[in-house]
């Protein structure tokens, strides 16, 4: 990193990831990210940026640097084994036609 580049970004507000529960009963879902000086401001900014159209009832924020991500190069070993565990999926089970809504 050049000196110049460091000067430009030195005092940038940290980046936060925003997760929003769109209505009661649902999971929090990643909505996007934003900058804020602290966690309180991050929540408020998230409210102002990502719920302008009443998209949320609950907000989580986490500073982006604390997110640990899996390595896409290893995705075969992480996720492919689940491919043959089809018994985890509801359509694996045959139900008589009379049973609806399960």
């Amino acid at each position: 990193m050049t000196n110049d580049k460091m000067n430009i970004t030195k005092n940038e507000w940290p980046l936060w990831e925003v997760f929003i529960r769109s209505k009661a009963g649902l999971d929090h879902k990643h909505a996007g990210s934003l900058h804020a000086a602290d966690e309180q401001m991050a929540i408020e900014n998230a409210r102002d940026v990502y719920t302008r159209r009443m998209e949320g009832v609950s907000i989580w924020v986490v500073e982006s640097k604390y997110i640990h991500a899996s390595d896409p190069g290893e995705s075969a070993s992480l996720y492919d084994p689940a491919n043959d565990k089809i018994y985890r999926h509801p359509t694996f089970y045959e139900l008589p036609d009379e049973v609806k809504y399960m």
Binding site: I8, T9, G32, L34, V49, R52
Partner: peptide, 26 residues
């Protein structure tokens, strides 16, 4: 205001590529 929001979404998308918003402003 929506346009500000759109700018923000897009800056965020670009930030995932390893550039900061401050650098882009610069």
């Amino acid at each position: 205001q929506d346009e500000a929001g759109h700018g923000l979404y897009l800056y965020s998308a670009a930030e995932t590529l390893g550039i900061t918003r401050d650098e882009m402003y610069n």
